Simulated assay, not measured.
Amino acid sequence: MKHLSKLCLALLLFGLVFACKQADYNAEATAATESAAITADSTVSAKNNPTKNLEKKELERKFIRTADLKFKVKNVAKSTYAIERIVEKHGGFITFSDLKSNISEHKLTQVSQDSTLETTRFTVDNTITLRVPNTQLDTVLTAITKEVNFLDSRLIKADDVALQLLSNKLAQKRMTNSQKRLEKGIDTKGKKLNEISTAEDKVLEKATESDDTLLKNLSLEDQVNFSTVTLYLYQKETIKNELIANEKSINAYRPHIGLQIWDSLKTGWFMLEGIIAFVVQLWAILLIAFLGYLAYQKRNSKQK
């Protein structure tokens, strides 16, 4: 009897343990089922709403990288040509280059009767703006440092514009949808001419805003793809001395005195010829004056 009671108690304990394990197993199975359902719902939701995936992809880092450098070189012209070759080699291009000489002093010193020493003090500099692929920016900057004799400054910036690009795309999408709804409303409900005209103006306004947003995004994407680098190159002041020949004075080309006297005589004779010719042109007046004089003399003789 005693052994029977112990056996019953053992069976009861075993049943309780089995029931607890079964309950735990059912709970785990339920949790796994719910988790799978949630995962499936999330997958279906992601498939049904690709905008979230697009937004997540658009939020990847997108940097507009720029660089500004100022440095001294041995020869600005040679360094400019070297930099242009480096940029072309790495798929970039030059957008601005201003190579010039700045004269600080210009002096002439006569060293002999027919020679003059020309002294010029000047500096040469160049401002270059270039665009290179974003992935080649570091390589190009490293290659340019070979031309640097003394580095004054070096500034590199990276601005993340991923959010701005995404904002512009979403705004463009909203404006496009609004434009389509307006066009549909015009086709289906537009009756009066003034109503259609007002709706058309709104459609044009939406289209213009959409185009402006698209252009802004294209500009940002161009700046992301191609980095902008501004370089200022200069070299130490240079002195150039050049010996130049003096130009002959105008006095060296003056004729001698005999030729000047002969020219004066010819000039006087030409003047006399001109006077005689002028007097001859007045022969009619002189003739009338002479005849008047004769008539006057004849009249006076009769009176006497």
Rank of each mutant, 00 (worst) to 15 (best):
L141R: 03
T142I: 07
A143G: 00
A143V: 07
A143S: 04
A143H: 01
I144D: 04
I144G: 02
T145G: 09
E147Y: 04
F150G: 10
F150V: 09
L151F: 05
D152Y: 04
S153Q: 08
S153K: 03
K157P: 02
D159R: 14
D160A: 00
V161T: 04
L163G: 15
L165F: 02
L165Y: 06
L165G: 01
L166I: 00
L166V: 03
N168V: 07
L170I: 11
L170C: 01
R174H: 14
R174L: 11
N177I: 15
S178M: 15
S178R: 13
Q179T: 11
K180S: 14
L182C: 08
L182P: 04
K184D: 08
G185F: 13
G185C: 08
I186V: 02
D187L: 12
T188F: 06
T188M: 12
K189G: 11
G190D: 03
K192A: 14
N194L: 14
N194G: 14
E195Y: 13
S197C: 00
T198H: 10
A199W: 04
D201L: 14
D201W: 09
D201H: 03
K202H: 09
V203K: 04
L204A: 11
E205V: 08
K206E: 13
E209I: 05
E209M: 08
S210N: 04
S210W: 01
D212R: 10
D212C: 08
T213Q: 08
T213V: 12
T213H: 08
L214H: 13
L214N: 09
L214Q: 12
K216S: 03
N217Q: 01
N217E: 08
L218Y: 04
S219K: 04
S219H: 05
L220D: 00
L220P: 02
E221A: 00
Q223K: 05
N225I: 00
F226R: 00
F226A: 02
S227C: 03
T228N: 10
T228W: 00
T228I: 01
V229R: 00
V229G: 02
T230I: 11
Y232S: 10
Y234S: 15
Y234P: 06
Q235S: 05
K236S: 15
K236W: 11
E237V: 03
E237N: 05
E237F: 01
I239H: 04
N241I: 04
N241M: 07
N241V: 02
E242C: 05
L243Y: 05
I244H: 05
I244V: 13
I244Y: 03
N246H: 01
E247S: 13
K248P: 14
K248V: 13
K248D: 10
S249L: 11
S249K: 09
S249E: 08
S249A: 08
I250S: 09
I250G: 09
I250N: 11
Y253A: 15
Y253K: 10
Y253L: 13
R254A: 10
P255K: 06
P255G: 06
H256M: 15
I257Q: 13
I257N: 13
G258L: 15
G258N: 10
